[in-house]
Design a protein around this nucleic acid. Structure first.
Lengths: 208, 208
DNA sequence: GTCTATACGACGATAGAC
DNA sequence: GTCTATCGTCGTATAGAC
């Protein structure tokens, strides 16, 4: 499912959620509506009435699916973190060579941020709104994803002054992709991924 | 001026603004209060009453200094962009060697994000709230700062597949520093800057 | 400059009919 | 499942006294 949207803190991008693992029907429309609005205006900048209108239902009907606005955000944030973590796990599954692993992780990270840029923005920039209890599952997934990169970088094959700083640098450059990648921009997702893989390998001291 | 603060989307950091170029007295307290609250809860998550309380004045008194909440944010966003741009200009002033220029830019960029992490976070993540008119001056400064990096990277000495993608990558890794750097973390600002300079040089194809 | 008091619209959420 | 109607609260901003 997709829809064009006009944003503000990000490039124009389609409102897309991972398929198969997210609700369909009215509940799915609610999630998509909330995703677009949260990405554009932020959680506190979006009202329950606006979400309802964008989903084609009355705001009161929303409460049949989610008992608070915060729970809508919690679901989006969890979906985003789950999708990224699942993809990263799949990407390194079966690989043994550290360079191949780093390549796969960066490539996958970039694609997650190009293919689901709105979800990435919401997931990264609105998580802080959630209560500690609601944020916890997402934070655990985030820590696990970071550890995946950290383990690869600490493998010994690479030449970095500090694996944690290298992980922060690589993670940061990938995370920002969600803020600028979009249709009105002249690089393909593959070009970005290829370039960022090269950057990450060089950054980690791999000589081509 | 500084004060401890407890956040959520960023590490614990002091509420600091550049000195000399920002208001003092009550107006200064308003700006500092707003900076801490906007960083922690976001613009829409912060009320005029909370800003007043944190500044030690009644919310109505605020309107003697700023005629709307949006104008408070606009000033912070402008201060942040102005400070970064000024520092970047100073950093490369007089330099001719491209490698030295890139080194100075990255180092300065990192320091701006370690020394004014709250301002960096607000500046980068709440700018989208402003109307086009109020955002314009900050966006112009941002474009100028990006161009500074782009010009250096396009100098010919470096080996990158695409200077714009390299600039995005370097900018992204630096920008994220504001979200995790803080007192409760075991790297000094110099360690971060040294590491990120090395990363940026390698990324740009400079062999050490 | 700073306060108290207040206007008034928008907010999240609920009750109850269909 | 979805609606209309509404509750109580909190939002930004202003008026006017001191």
């Amino acid at each position: 499912m997709s829809e064009q949207w006009n944003k503000g803190r990000l490039a124009t991008a389609a409102v897309v959620l991972p398929e198969g693992t997210t609700p369909t029907g009215t509940q799915g429309r609610v999630l998509h509506a909330a995703l677009g609005l949260f990405a554009e205006r932020g959680f506190h900048g979006t009202s329950i009435r606006e979400i309802g209108a964008a989903a084609g239902i009355n705001s009161a009907t929303l409460y049949g699916y989610y008992s608070s606005k915060e729970l809508v955000l919690a679901e989006l944030v969890l979906v985003g973190h789950r999708e990224l973590h699942r993809r990263l796990l799949d990407a390194v599954d079966g690989l043994t060579d550290p360079v191949e692993k780093l390549t796969a992780l960066v490539r996958t990270h970039v694609f997650a941020h190009t293919d689901f840029s709105l979800l990435a923005v919401v997931t990264n920039s609105e998580l802080h709104v959630l209560s500690a209890e609601l944020a916890a599952p997402a934070l655990a997934l985030r820590a696990a994803s970071e550890q995946l990169l950290l383990d690869v970088l600490a493998d010994g094959v690479f030449d970095v002054p500090d694996a944690r700083l290298a992980a922060r640098a690589i993670g940061g450059m990938g995370q920002r992709v969600g803020n600028w990648f979009g249709p009105g921009q002249d690089h393909t997702r593959e070009q970005v991924a290829d370039a960022f893989v090269l950057f990450a390998l060089r950054l980690a001291g791999v000589r081509a």
